[in-house]
């Protein structure tokens, strides 16, 4: 049986995404148990220069698939490339980020290779000859340990769940010729919201709920700005049309796990609580002292959010001088 680990990386705008380092570090942790080696896979166009960064997180080998057809990072091209890189490594475990693109690659790769997959994992360990992954289910209401049998075991890890740890590896960049046949996805347009902090990657999230009373989120946005936070919304706020669906936190929206989560005018429906339960510190601001969110927070302020939130913003700004 192979003992090798393959860590599949991902870039945005010509740089590695943070999740790539989390993926390599997770691979490193597993490789220490299986006896390694750890190979990082880098796929893209013109990615030679950044690829060697993978060694700074402990990669023993760095395989680069450099192909014009990979420049947009489209899933069908990446799946073909990943499958070809894999043939060079024959890994026991494949680690990939559970990003929007990583999830697509992981799901199709598992079907193509008839390999077990654990999606959106928050922890991974090796137990005998099995990989055991911990993953939230029911939108985070439950944590499940799943045991994977078969090879390679594919583990897609949730962004921010694992730590990226610097570790010097011996990896040199090795270019691998790959062939892309019959890719069928065509990119027509790409739209990235510049300057917007992605909810699932944010250290701090400030969420507005039904208590906002309308689409004016100025007070919430001001607090988010002071904290360098992402702005979220409850399902009711989204259903009312006050915020885009991409802002929704909850079981039918995004699951977030920031260090600090501030819920403003959010009552705390079960499906919302599921989406933010893994936050480290939760603050609730609501004028209804009976709101269920107060039973699920660390600190609560009973009061009108339109008075309290600006006051908190002012305190934060005072701190920052």
């Amino acid at each position: 049986m192979s003992q090798g680990i393959l860590a599949i990386t991902e870039q945005v705008d010509g740089s590695f995404k943070n999740i790539s380092f989390e993926v390599i570090s997770t691979g490193k942790k597993i490789a220490e148990k299986t006896g390694g080696p750890l190979t990082a896979a880098v796929m893209g166009a013109g990615v030679d220069a950044i690829a060697r960064q993978a060694a700074e997180y402990g990669a023993d080998r760095i395989l680069v698939a450099d192909h014009e057809g990979l420049k947009d990072g489209l899933s069908d091209a990446c799946i073909q490339a990943a499958a070809q890189l894999m043939a060079h490594v024959d890994p026991a475990v494949v680690v990939i980020g559970a990003t929007s693109s990583g999830k697509d690659i992981a799901a199709r790769l598992s079907a193509r290779l008839n390999a077990p997959l654990a999606m959106d994992c928050v922890d991974v360990r090796v137990d005998g000859d099995r990989v055991v992954a911990t993953r939230p289910m029911y939108g985070g209401k439950v944590l499940a340990d799943v045991s994977l049998s078969g090879f390679p075991a594919i583990v897609a890890i949730r962004p921010r769940a694992m730590e990226a740890v610097a570790a010097q590896g011996a990896g040199e960049v090795e270019k691998v010729d790959i062939r892309l046949d019959g890719t069928t996805l065509n990119l027509v347009e790409k739209h990235l919201e510049t300057g917007k902090i992605e909810l699932t990657e944010a250290d701090v999230v400030v969420t507005g709920g039904r208590g906002m009373g309308g689409d004016d989120f100025t007070v919430v946005e001001a607090l988010a700005k002071a904290l360098g936070a992402a702005v979220g919304a409850s399902r009711s706020a989204v259903d009312e049309g006050w915020r885009p669906v991409s802002d929704q936190v909850g079981q039918t929206g995004k699951v977030v796990a920031p260090n600090l989560y501030i819920a403003c005018g959010v009552s705390g429906a079960i499906q919302h609580l599921a989406g933010m339960a893994s936050s480290r510190v939760v603050v609730a601001i609501n004028k209804d002292p009976e709101a269920p969110i107060f039973a699920k927070c660390d600190f609560g302020i009973v009061g009108d959010l339109f008075d309290v939130v600006p006051a908190v913003t002012a305190e934060i700004e005072k701190l920052k001088g």
């Binding site: 944590l143 927070c297 609560g300 006051a311």
Partner: peptide, 27 residues
Amino acid sequence: VETIAMRLPPQRKGGRIIEGDSAADKA
């Protein structure tokens, strides 16, 4: 893929309600 264990995530107990005379004090 076999689920071998399932548990509830650590539950938060009721939060500490911050008291104060005004919004500014509480903040």
